[in-house]
């Protein structure tokens, strides 16, 4: 909390950040696959219904699907990160639109640990902290191993309790 541990001049950078669980990349891939279903349907339906439809017309669709399944998940995974240092939760995310949010433990109102169906299948969880502010009233950090998320919740809760006592 002294200025010595101040973050470097470039505000959104990855130093000192923990990366998310590698399984989260797989989850993002599966989400990409789900999204590619409508793309593939849109690309194949004319091929079946219209006679003499060139197969080359499907190439852009295949490219999009490749991006959705292979490229975007790993880039999104790499763009995300978090840190719990100095009694603050720091969440960094976004490829194009970067955001770097810091919530000091002393400002956390309550904490949620949630699991969607895909996350449950991979034993992952999303940690959400709620603040009293209108902006960033809830800050979500997806892609944590479930036991890590629970441990982080305990860490934050212990810090809050210690502060209030």
């Amino acid at each position: 909390m002294e200025h010595t541990d101040a973050l470097p001049a470039a505000p959104v950078d990855g130093t000192g950040l923990s990366s998310l669980d590698p399984r989260y990349r797989t989850v993002l891939r599966i989400v990409g696959m789900i999204w590619s279903i409508p793309v593939l349907i849109a690309a194949t339906v004319p091929g079946i219904t219209i006679a003499n439809w060139s197969l080359y017309a499907a190439i852009p669709a295949v490219l999009v699907v490749g991006l959705l399944i292979l490229r975007f998940p790993s880039r999104r995974w790499a763009a995300r990160g978090y840190s719990l240092a100095d009694e603050r939760l720091r969440v960094v995310s976004g490829i194009m639109f970067r955001s770097d949010t810091v919530v000091p433990f002393g400002r956390v109102q309550h904490i949620d640990v949630g699991q969607g169906p895909l996350e449950r299948a991979f034993d992952l969880a999303t940690l959400t902290v709620h603040t009293a502010g209108t902006h960033n009233s809830s800050v979500a950090l997806p892609g944590l191993a479930h036991e890590d998320a629970l441990a982080m919740r305990e860490t934050i809760r212990a810090a809050i309790r210690r502060d209030t006592l």
Partner: peptide, 19 residues
């Protein structure tokens, strides 16, 4: 009395160095 701090940058902002 502030609750959180966020630095947000769009693609142009990141390239040009403002936030």
């Amino acid at each position: 009395k502030l609750q959180s701090v966020e630095i947000a940058q769009g693609p142009i902002a990141r390239h040009r160095g403002y936030a």
